[in-house]
Nucleic acid binder design. Sequence first.
DNA 1: TATGAATGAGACTTCATTCAT
DNA 2: AATGAATGAAGTCTCATTCAT
Lengths: 210, 210, 210, 210
Amino acid sequence: MANTVQPKRRKRVDGELSRERILDAASEIAAERGYEGTSIALVSAKCDLPASSIYWHFKNKDDLIAAVIERSFASWLRAWEVPGDGTARERVQGLAMQIAKALLDSPDFIRLGLMLALERRPIEARARAMFIQARTQTAVALTETLSELTPGLTETQMRQLVTYAIAGADGLFIANEVDDQAVDLIEMFNMHANALYSTAVRLLSENAGQ
Amino acid sequence: MANTVQPKRRKRVDGELSRERILDAASEIAAERGYEGTSIALVSAKCDLPASSIYWHFKNKDDLIAAVIERSFASWLRAWEVPGDGTARERVQGLAMQIAKALLDSPDFIRLGLMLALERRPIEARARAMFIQARTQTAVALTETLSELTPGLTETQMRQLVTYAIAGADGLFIANEVDDQAVDLIEMFNMHANALYSTAVRLLSENAGQ
Amino acid sequence: MANTVQPKRRKRVDGELSRERILDAASEIAAERGYEGTSIALVSAKCDLPASSIYWHFKNKDDLIAAVIERSFASWLRAWEVPGDGTARERVQGLAMQIAKALLDSPDFIRLGLMLALERRPIEARARAMFIQARTQTAVALTETLSELTPGLTETQMRQLVTYAIAGADGLFIANEVDDQAVDLIEMFNMHANALYSTAVRLLSENAGQ
Amino acid sequence: MANTVQPKRRKRVDGELSRERILDAASEIAAERGYEGTSIALVSAKCDLPASSIYWHFKNKDDLIAAVIERSFASWLRAWEVPGDGTARERVQGLAMQIAKALLDSPDFIRLGLMLALERRPIEARARAMFIQARTQTAVALTETLSELTPGLTETQMRQLVTYAIAGADGLFIANEVDDQAVDLIEMFNMHANALYSTAVRLLSENAGQ
DNA sequence: TATGAATGAGACTTCATTCAT
DNA sequence: AATGAATGAAGTCTCATTCAT
């Protein structure tokens, strides 16, 4: 009669599980409605735990949203990696493709993050700080990759190129959000990759000219 | 006809003035905190008029925010116009410069608009619709201008180019918002203009190649 | 058909009336249960106005309790006045009688005030400050009166005498609260008056002896 | 018998220690914020034990506060004892000194107790009852002592004198709480002792006069 | 052309307490 | 001898909005 079911330690394990359920619910709502639009009552209803239980797992709403950002940033970082072969232009295009797909796969991170970035309420939310930190990390990773693909740029030029690369991605993401029928995101990211490559080439030629 | 006192128009004028004060306050707050973060009480405190007076001038909160968008869009449209001379590349650069400066001068329109665009709350707000309409108008104007500057593109290519142009502008605006010290917006818009021009040239050469 | 009923401007007048109703309810509850025990819901139920209406009249709970203190202090001050004739001892006794009766008539001020005075929560409540200020005013008034009745005391002695006078009153009030059947407050205040007078005489004789 | 390890008593000892830590934390908080202001969460944070552990040691919040009163009353009683020699006036003064010092040494008992005594919430708390019982015990002890020091008073006079003695002590304690810089508690208790003695003498002479 | 007063709903958060482990 | 997790009730306060004047 070997009892294979082991309901022991359920509560202990359920703690982590509950936390995850709360984060799932909060992610979904926050991506839809932003910081202020995400009410604890809404999250509570969606994850089917009383509001007071949410406060067992998170200090307050800010803490909760920050945890949402943290978790979704991790999964976003996992989603893209540098392609290893082909010409420089092809590899830049390949990278852009990765990012485009990551954006389409898990848009919550960017959507919520951009909303937080745009908000400027007097008391800086921890959640906002967390997004900006995540974005800085992205910029560092991108700098490394582009440095390898298009060597010879000055530090300033590199920084500008990375800023422009990220800006284009953000902007295209928004364009897709505003009217997802009119925009072929993959196609547009391809155009962005080409533009980036052309820009790099132009900058290099300027360096040579001087 | 020397009667300088005009008590008849007095009330009307005061009314307009109050309306303007409300819009000023609402603009500032909405640009800082988004739709949900803009409470009537906050607006009331900032413009020093009772909340009930706001409801005399505007049907409800949605109507107020929509009016904010409407007014700031008008001033934004007024701020840029196509430069008339020079080479095509120079004129694209000139246009980019206009837009960059308009963004720096009255950033509220874009900031609030982007926030609204990113939000996806179930019931579409009139304010969001108004921003998207304003943006469509911008796209139309941009299409006209770019058609003139880089003729020969197919309609699809043109639409893509305009989408990319706007996306870049949005993205650079956000980059500037996130860290306004690290980004020289004018410089970056110049880079964007060059990238746009290069893209147009590439597309044209592809057309010729086919 | 001269209509003598004038329901006009009712709402405007009701504002003051509502404020008074709220203060009445809050006074009663706060005197019974102290600062923390006075919940807005309780006050709301007792004055039959929704909680949100209380916030129209008072900024927050602290503001409300402070207003309670303020109002009850005013009525308390009105309740006692210095008796004008008789020997010094008789006049001190007469004054004590006034205060004893004032305490019995409107005990809320003292009860709530003492509770606030005893509390030492980190963030000082405005209500507590208000009580302490009221009490200082009482001390000043008492100093004037006693100076006239028992002249010749040094400033330090006077201050001590006043402190002792108030302390005795506070203590007797508490004794009456703890067990109002065992204590005849009037009788006890008479004893207090005699003790005060004896103390003054003793101090004066010490002064003379030096 | 050289076994120095005693794991059997270990749990018991730890338990007592936890209980003590909880009581320490609760005492401090309750003396600062009163009954309602003392939340289990606050106590839990201060003693660094989970809230559920507090409920292992105490039935509920009321039980906890009652235990606080009980413990602090014991230490308070331990702190004063009747001086054995000198004139009656000197011995009364000596006793007053003891009490003044006990008040300064462990003020928590009185502060919390007075707060409870002043509160009149509908459902009598066990904690309040415990304080009143403690206070009755003090009155009995004081009656014994004063009977010995000033014999010849009627029972009623004695009860009044004891009531007045305690009232003065309470009042002076409060004066010291409200503004501890302006009040020299030792000096004031000396004044109180003299006043008590004078009162006793006056009462005795009245008895003789009748 | 306003506005003082009010209000029900809902915001975030803490409360005292329980229970399975 | 504890404790992680949960929970319904209640806490203070703000919300958008209405209405009589």
